[in-house]
């Protein structure tokens, strides 16, 4: 029986399996972007009271940097047993002019990464329990996702 896919955190990203987006906010006056909206994010001090509207952030960006972790992190991370190294990417969004972290897409090869590479937002597994697969946003090299799309057609 397949497990139910649920977001590992509510309200941070859309569960659109084909074209997921991070759910952010935009200041209606300055046009500054904010994400994730659920936790403390700084305000533009020149417009501290500006209204914010919900907005989907760009799905594509350029790789700012990355690192692969070879030791299991402490709780509350749910590490698989045996532990599998995982890569964290920092991706620069052009329109939003901000850098957003996310794990590298499950199965993508960190050895193929380079700063400036085009990346695309995807959904992937973070951990699971008996009934659910908890899903999180991830970054995939765009060439790889394009190739996968071709293969699937």
């Amino acid at each position: 029986m397949s497990k139910v896919r649920v977001p590992a955190v509510e309200g941070w990203f859309t569960m659109d399996e084909r074209e997921p987006h991070l759910i952010g906010e935009r200041g209606t006056r300055t046009g500054s972007y904010f994400w994730p909206k659920a936790v403390a994010v700084s305000a533009n001090p020149l417009a501290p009271d500006e209204e914010r509207e919900e907005v989907l952030l760009s799905r594509h960006g350029r790789l700012w940097s990355w690192t692969t972790n070879h030791y299991p992190p402490p709780e509350p991370y749910v590490a698989p047993d045996p532990f599998v190294p995982y890569t964290v990417c920092a991706v620069e969004l052009e329109r939003e002019r901000m850098v957003v972290l996310g794990q590298l897409a499950t199965g993508a090869d960190p050895a193929a990464l380079a700063v400036g590479m085009e990346m695309e937002l995807v959904l992937g597994p973070l951990f699971e329990d008996d009934a659910h697969e908890y899903v999180v946003w991830q970054w995939a090299p765009r060439a790889a996702t394009a190739a996968r799309g071709e293969a699937g057609r």
């Binding site: 200041g27 046009g31 500054s32 972007y33 936790v39 329109r95 901000m98 957003v100 972290l101």
Partner: peptide, 8 residues
């Protein structure tokens, strides 16, 4: 999780 946005 993210930097501030330099847009706007």
């Amino acid at each position: 999780f993210a930097t501030d946005s330099a847009a706007g």
